[in-house]
């Protein structure tokens, strides 16, 4: 079972108790640095650097971690504490593992014949995070790799221990067809309800402070210029320009079809809003491009204001 939200803090505190504890003490590389393993690595990577060949060969620095790997027979050097930490995560349902970050510094070259020792410490365990793969905790370790007692390199490594989000198409009954994923619903509250009422009538409403006249968007309970809570609205004329934009490539959230352009639109009235830029390929959106408001029906209950690149601007 995955830990529920009610005991999430308590579970994280138990995980954090392992921060600073050793994950491996005086671990030993299973093989001394050697030419065959170097050659296999270079062959796989397509690396023809001359320093990694011949009688004076050094190991490719990026190979640092390979010398500390447990291989098929596993890690004999793992500490009890690290085993417990991983066991705790496994027990909570976070049984899968994927590496996300690797930071290495290479202090001296490793040469054939060098024997490897290493010490690893648990640096941090993150709060629970949800990623595309699933929900879990990031575990960061730091390893000092030595040869002949001398520090050869350091290696910081981050893994995600996670509960898989969904199973693949393993044998089993065919799944019933799923409803197409829908866009997230807007969160409508008393501070922004008027905006969504405007959208329903195909009117883009901007708040105006009745004390100082400042326009504001998005909707807020008070005026950022003078603090007054009194306001009325003006309807946007619909003209604007692309003030800035990003192109969304990854991750592909359900109901969205990347790549697409997300624009920061400066309305003719002077306020800015974030929305999609449509009617132009995502890679042809440009800063300064004139755009015009329109309302796009997303599904049977959701309509959104979007901005169409004006004619003749492509």
């Amino acid at each position: 079972m995955t830990a529920g939200p009610e005991d999430e803090d308590g579970f994280h505190a138990r995980l954090r108790a392992y921060e600073g504890k050793p994950a491996a003490t005086a671990g030993r590389g299973k093989d001394p640095v050697n030419l065959p393993m170097i050659r296999h690595w270079c062959e796989a990577m397509g690396d023809a650097h001359p320093a990694y060949r011949g009688p004076d060969a050094v190991a490719p620095p990026a190979m640092l971690q390979a010398w500390t790997m447990g291989g098929l027979s596993g890690h004999a050097d793992r500490s009890e504490a690290y085993g417990e930490l991983l066991g705790l995560l496994d027990g909570a349902g976070y049984t899968s593992v994927v590496a996300t970050d690797c930071e290495q510094e290479y202090l001296r070259p490793l040469r054939p014949g060098d024997t490897i020792t290493f010490d690893t410490v648990v640096e941090s365990v993150s709060p629970r995070k949800t990623t595309r793969l699933g929900t879990g905790h990031f575990v960061t370790t730091r390893t000092d790799v030595r040869t002949g007692g001398e520090l050869a390199g350091t290696h910081r490594f981050r893994i995600l221990k996670y509960a898989p989000a969904a199973r693949g198409t393993a044998p089993g009954p065919p799944e019933p067809p799923k409803a197409a994923p829908r866009r997230p619903r807007p969160v409508v509250n008393r501070d922004n309800a008027g905006f969504w009422e405007g959208v329903a009538e195909h009117r883009l409403l901007i708040q105006r402070c009745t004390a100082c006249g400042a326009l504001r968007f998005p909707w807020l309970p008070g005026c950022a210029a003078c603090g007054s809570p009194e306001w009325d609205t003006v309807e946007a004329g619909g003209g604007g320009t692309v003030h800035s934009y990003v192109v969304m490539h990854h991750p592909p959230f359900p109901a969205f079809d990347p790549p697409y352009a997300v624009g920061l639109i400066e309305l003719a009235e002077g306020v800015r809003m974030i929305s999609n830029v449509v009617g132009v390929p995502y890679d042809e959106v440009r800063i300064g491009m004139p755009v015009r408001l329109e309302f796009q029906r997303v599904d049977e209950e959701l309509e959104l204001p979007v901005f169409r690149a004006s004619e003749g601007e492509r």
Binding site: W41, A44, M45, G46, D47, A48, H49, P50, A51, P60, P61, A62, M63, Q65, A66, A99, T100, D101, C102, E103, Q104, E105, Y106, P109
Partner: peptide, 26 residues
């Protein structure tokens, strides 16, 4: 991740030539 690390290392030293030495990779 180790293969990615190896490919990035190769990409960099391929460009900077046979005497180039990697000092760090993040």
């Amino acid at each position: 991740i180790l293969t990615t690390n190896g490919l990035v290392g190769r990409y960099v030293t391929d460009h900077f030539g046979p005497r180039s030495v990697l000092r760090a990779l993040t």
